[in-house]
Amino acid sequence: MSETTTPSTALPEISVSADKVTSVDTEPKNTFELRNVNVFYGDMLAVKDVSMAIPHNQITAFIGPSGCGKSTLLRSLNRMNDLIPGARVEGDVLYHGMNMYGPKVDPVQVRTVIGMVFQKPNPFPKSIYDNVAFGPRLQGRNGNLDDVVEEALRGAALWDEVKDRLKDNAYGMSGGQQQRLCIARAIAVQPDVILMDEPCSALDPVSTGRIEDLMVELKKTYTIVIVTHNMQQAARVADRTAFFTVLANDETGSRTGVLVEYAATTKIFSKPDDERTENYVSGRFG
């Protein structure tokens, strides 16, 4: 079976792969299954007809030029798009076979299972400790959270740097530390998936390297989906890579993101099937 899914060839039989979620199979299980997903902002079609499967305990990268809808698609995976008035998702987004946009699904609950780390580190203006304890406290865990906080900070490779100043304001940390704190904060909620929206774009190369090492460590426990502008980053950390591009309609002025190619990262960067992918990863476009 082809690993490539282009919108124009997203035939119904490709979505057969979704059935693997329930079938006993030697292939890795999929955390997400997307079938013919469209994302709209009001009348504007931002992402068109995406079908893909995101495997469990792997890092999947979304790459592509600005405006290709990769962040929009990422945000539809934990219903953060619900916060934008007029945003709407069509098609099926399945999480372990469950329809994420089903009538009984609670977006607040979704986000405790599927966490997110953002482009710019956004710690709360509270102490390091209170940042990490924020999620557990939301879930009603009061009392002593020292163990939870330590475990999450260790998980984010931050414990040794901050263990003596847990009561200090998080804004006294460096940008890279702040971003790892945001990862610790996400881990503390004990999610299944961590979505990362360009997590290193505001960081220096050393901090970026540490976060990349951390991601590789984290995928043992979590499924990770990362949006990145940095192709080297995708090549370094991702197991699978999806390349998106943007189709601009000059008459209506609309710009719609489409999935061009989705395959193992080595394939995307060495011998992609689609010419547009090759142009992008070789730096001739975008």
């Binding site: 953060m80 986000r111 405790t112 709360f124 924020f134």
Partner: peptide, 15 residues
């Protein structure tokens, strides 16, 4: 208050 702080809280399952 920056929207990014709100997003951070929503992403952790805050109502």
């Amino acid at each position: 208050v920056p929207a990014s702080l709100r997003e951070g809280a929503y992403a952790m399952g805050a109502t």
